[in-house]
Amino acid sequence: MQRVVHVAVAAVMLGGAMTGSAVRAEAQLPTVQQVYDKYATAVGGRDAWAKVTGRTEKGTADITFAGLSGSYVRYIGAPNLMRMTINLGVLEIDQGFDGEKGWQQQGQGAQRMPPDQEKSLAENLQTGATFLDPGRFAKAEVQSKETFDGAEAYKLAVTTKGGAEQFEFFDVNSGLRIGSVVKSPAGAQQIIYRDYKEFEGKKLSTKVIQNQPQGDVIINISTVTFGAPDGAVFKAPAELR
């Protein structure tokens, strides 16, 4: 009888210790605002980004599963405009969003993007310092600290105001965003952000890896120019207007 009592007490004490450890681990996690404040500082500060009205990125793209490489150009303009072209020689990929319509074409005429992709572009393509404000999400929480792409990272679960769910990963030490996992009806897509470099006092990832079922698409950015691109580059193809 005495032995049973001792075991029970030990179990209660162990449970209390485990609960205490869990509370301490949870208490060590920063708030969402603290994560984004560190991120903002790491990429140059909110004041520097607030002046940005658009940018032009140039570099190369590697379609690993097809063994193809080519030039990459992407234009971003206010409030959420985007145009991207990848010239692979045998094929040119053209994608864009004019603020209302998203399209993509790969040598067979322009096709309208699925509604979920259009919604995602409308919400995630932000100019200025908006991308550094967690208030743009309907819901956000720091879930855990875990390893992502070989680095210790804070994992944030966010829900956009349009209802899309995704995870964001921020390097514990540098504060930089190093990855995302975006959910969609077609499944989850993982994106890795590496090799941050400074352009005009602001930092951007210069190696973006999109993990896809058939293989990776790797974007390597060599130059970034800030300023609003010519509005004509964002016009949808004539057949979609």
Rank of each mutant, 00 (worst) to 15 (best):
K58W: 03
F137V: 03
K161M: 00
P114H: 10
P229K: 06
T225D: 01
P30N: 00
A48I: 13
G175A: 09
D37F: 02
N87W: 02
I218Q: 04
N211A: 06
R46Y: 03
E200M: 00
V23T: 07
M82L: 15
V35H: 08
Q105H: 00
A236V: 06
G44Q: 08
W103I: 04
Q212A: 14
D62Q: 11
V208N: 05
Q106I: 11
K207R: 15
G150N: 12
A25Y: 09
V182S: 12
I93V: 14
E141T: 15
A228M: 07
K207M: 06
G70R: 07
R136Q: 04
K38E: 12
G54K: 06
A10L: 15
G59T: 06
W103M: 05
V208M: 12
G15H: 13
D216F: 09
I218R: 08
E200H: 10
Q212T: 12
A129I: 00
V182F: 09
G175W: 13
V224D: 08
R177G: 05
V224I: 07
T85M: 04
M113F: 00
P185Q: 14
K38I: 03
V142A: 15
I219D: 01
I86V: 10
A164C: 02
L240T: 05
A138S: 15
E168H: 11
K203L: 02
E198Q: 15
G109E: 03
V158M: 12
E118L: 10
E123T: 09
G99P: 05
D195Y: 13
N87I: 12
Q166W: 06
I93R: 01
A27K: 14
A66L: 14
D47A: 11
G109P: 01
A140Y: 14
D94S: 02
